[in-house]
Amino acid sequence: MNQQIDEAQEAEPMETEQSTKKRRVVVPGEVIVSGEDFLPSEGARREGQDILASRFGLAEEAGRVIKVIPITGAFIPRRNSVVLGRVTQITLNGWVIDIDAASSGFLPIDESPRFINKNEMDQFLAIGDVVAAKIWSINVRGIDLTLKGKGLGKLEGGFIFRVSPNSVPRIIGREGSMISLIKERTGCDIGAGQNGWVWVQSDNLDSQIQARKAIEFVSENVHVDGLTEKVEGLLNK
């Protein structure tokens, strides 16, 4: 079931190679465009005639709408994001999960995929175990997680490692194309969380090494043209 983690992801802003949208790197405070017609969206603001960047990133003009897509920085939790996390504590009514964000996640016992007896919680998820979970609520108390959904649950075998969270959309690729390519060529199960943690599993150690190498290559070359061909080349070696 875990092979499907990436399919459980909602559509996220994604780097695509044949983008028709105009994009360029901007610094905070830089004027992106001028004119009454434009509408500032995420990461942008209007000052008089000008639309300015309110953070560092890729400014994108999609018709009249201007936004700035982050290309660097820490993971910012969003509702519906799928994340990988590590169980750090078992409480009376759920599990505390480190999701490598500014707040830890909480997985209530009712959000497990099946009924779990309160006395047997650690048999389902023990400290140090890894889960793929979805963020279903962010509130003042913290981040609430669920395992209900396709591709979510405990991850068995393999290993997890971290890449830049901002490179995850590219690792998944358009409609999952990049991750599918790497899965297919290496024969590994792979799941990427929006928090930058990636899970790779295979019984073959060399395949695991190769899959990780390919994923790290994508993560470090997000802005390179023709990335798919380069990854294919790497996997053919």
Binding site: P28, G29, S54, F56, G73, N166
Partner: peptide
């Protein structure tokens, strides 16, 4: 701070 992607009006 800019490099960390923190929302900021200007440098």
């Amino acid at each position: 701070l800019a490099h960390a992607g923190i929302p900021m009006r200007n440098l």
